[in-house]
Design a protein around this nucleic acid. Structure first.
Lengths: 349, 349
DNA sequence: TTGTAGGCGTTATCAA
DNA sequence: TTGATAACGCCTACAA
């Protein structure tokens, strides 16, 4: 049997290098960290020895000594929030160029789990924290003040007094969607929404009401269906509303996923989109482009949100005064799922 | 101006607790770690003091002392590989219940970036590493042997001599797809593939050929279009093949995304799916269920792959002999995108 | 330009 | 059952 290297492998440390080079630890450290106060020749020699020995610093030890980990903690709801694919790379890129590594974890919108994640972040001493879709609201302040770890919230699900927040104007986006539909000529506009315990659900609903009001449309409570934000809730919502005696000719949906559900619901009823019924989604996830018809939707610039949030965090970390709370404007992306109400639809109305 | 707590906040350490409790560091450590060799009363007192002071251990220091970080490094290609949403949670769950935290990073299938990621993992001294879609092939062995950090590869993109690998039978899956199409009665079956530098592209193409051969079908090179695995390559591939004098009546696609492209290409040509042309995807990502028609596709059980890989890694970490290389069988998922060749199609053929 | 010594917060070893 | 003391690997005054 061959001898197994196993975990016994001797580690190359500054000490080994010092011994090999015949200098002190300090000198090695200086050479490795590219300090000015060292002889060029000495440094060269040390560096090449380090190279030859295959030296790799222990960030554990370094962090313990410097009290900086060069790490950012990023907590997201789930990896299947489809826009994480857009925001995470944006955050990572910015962090990397600033010399930070990013530690991604999930909190599943469960306060307990979120607390545990934050705990982990603290015990690992990350230098800063980013939480997307946070559910903890009031529990944050001690974090920044007591432990000195700055924290930035991105699109929190709950109301919060936290200072460092970047969100987007959900209400405004929803309002734009509703008005667009109204301008197209729709008079019965349904809404498939999400539970109101979370801000997006609440605010998008509010925006919907606002849009209707501004367009001078009656606001029929029967046209609002609240589900769980998934495809199925869109499907069920569409079934329910479409079965009404005076059904909607257009739907403003909480998310692209719900919108996809509505697409299916309409199709199941033999209705064509957009000829018979129009639908607007929210988020502009990758999926939106590929369903048939491509979804008209509200796009939040997640990459930009990520960048702004990271900038905020980085500023807070190195003590410069970070930008105050930021709210970005989403915009309407026109694709193929909307049209003026068709003949058949108008006749019904 | 209010005094800023800043990073000056004094940390609560075992030492503070020891002082407060009037015992030694050692005793505190024992109490905190639930050791048997300590007086129950003492322990209780220490614990409550720790609680009161708001003690939180420094995993940095602990790891430095124990040489274990209780952390697994997970490198994925990108977060937009849509099946990461399936595999990552599976890995995380298993890791968590075994007391490990998971550190997710991206390597973008770039060898350089991958090397850097592995470097980070090593300097952070993760206890084990998982790489999905690895591109490094031969460069791994030193890792395990020299640094004693076990590493498991999941679906590597390149051939590798690495011992700990879990993959799935790409060839078999592709072959099943081709045969299924043949059994449906199709005689001209196209393939929209991916570049052959990566194993999946190569093996799925091989499986396609195998399936055709087994069905006794002629293998027309003109029916193979190699693109970049994205939606656009599916679209372009469909356009190209459908414009052939003797076009295919069915497509086996490298991925669900390519399949979506084919769907669009067919539609653009006025062809209906599945009446005029059938299409099979690969991966069964979330999207597959929601396009119209829902995609018949090859499903790899990513969650299972994740679990097997994690088990392997955990075994390797605590020295028990890990299971040898594992190859999982994908399976065909029947949905709405396939049918026997239609009248129009048959007439053409 | 280089070296000495102490500290970062824990755990582990060995006595008492 | 408890307590000194020495690691772990690195950084950083301060001194030479």
């Amino acid at each position: 049997m061959v001898a197994r290297g196993g975990r016994g492998a001797r580690r190359v440390t500054v000490k080994s290098i010092a011994r090999e080079a015949g200098v002190s630890l300090t000198t090695v450290s200086r050479a490795l960290n590219d300090r000015p106060d060292i002889d060029a020749e000495t440094r060269g020699r040390i560096l090449s020895i380090a190279q030859r020995l295959g030296y790799h610093p222990s960030s554990l030890a370094r962090s313990l000594a410097t009290q900086r980990t060069q790490t950012l903690g990023l907590a997201v709801r789930t990896l299947s929030d489809m826009w994480v694919v857009e925001i995470v790379p944006a955050i990572e890129e910015m962090a990397h160029t600033a010399g930070y590594e990013v530690f991604v974890t999930t909190h599943y919108a469960e306060p307990d789990r979120e607390r545990r994640v934050l705990d982990t972040f603290r015990s690992r001493q990350v230098d800063g924290i980013l939480v997307i879709s946070a559910t903890l609201g009031e529990a944050y302040p001690p974090f920044q003040e007591e432990w000195g770890i700055p924290l930035v919230l991105i699109s929190p699900l709950v109301d919060t007094a936290h200072r460092l927040v970047v969100g987007n104007d959900e209400t405004g986006g929803a309002r734009a969607a509703a008005r667009y539909l109204a301008e197209l000529g729709h008079r019965r506009i349904g809404h498939i929404g999400a539970p109101s315990w979370a801000r997006p659900g609440r605010e998008r609903l509010a925006g919907y009401h606002l849009g209707l009001a501004e367009a001078g449309l009656a606001d029929d409570p029967a046209l609002v269906y609240i589900g769980d934000a998934g495809v199925d809730s869109g499907l069920k919502g569409a079934e329910a509303l479409l079965a009404l005696p005076d059904p909607p000719t257009a739907f403003f949906c909480f998310s692209d996923l719900t919108a996809v559900g509505v697409l299916r619901g309409a199709r199941a009823r033999g209705l064509r989109v957009p000829e018979d019924v129009s639908v607007v989604g929210f988020d502009d996830v990758q999926l939106a482009r590929y369903v048939e018809p491509p979804l008209t939707t509200i796009r939040q610039n997640m990459a930009e949100m990520g960048r702004r949030a990271t900038r905020m965090l980085l500023d807070a970390i190195d003590g410069s005064e970070p930008e105050a709370a930021v709210e970005l404007q989403p915009r309407l992306v026109l694709r193929g799922s909307c049209a003026p109400p068709g003949k058949e639809a108008s006749r019904r109305a």
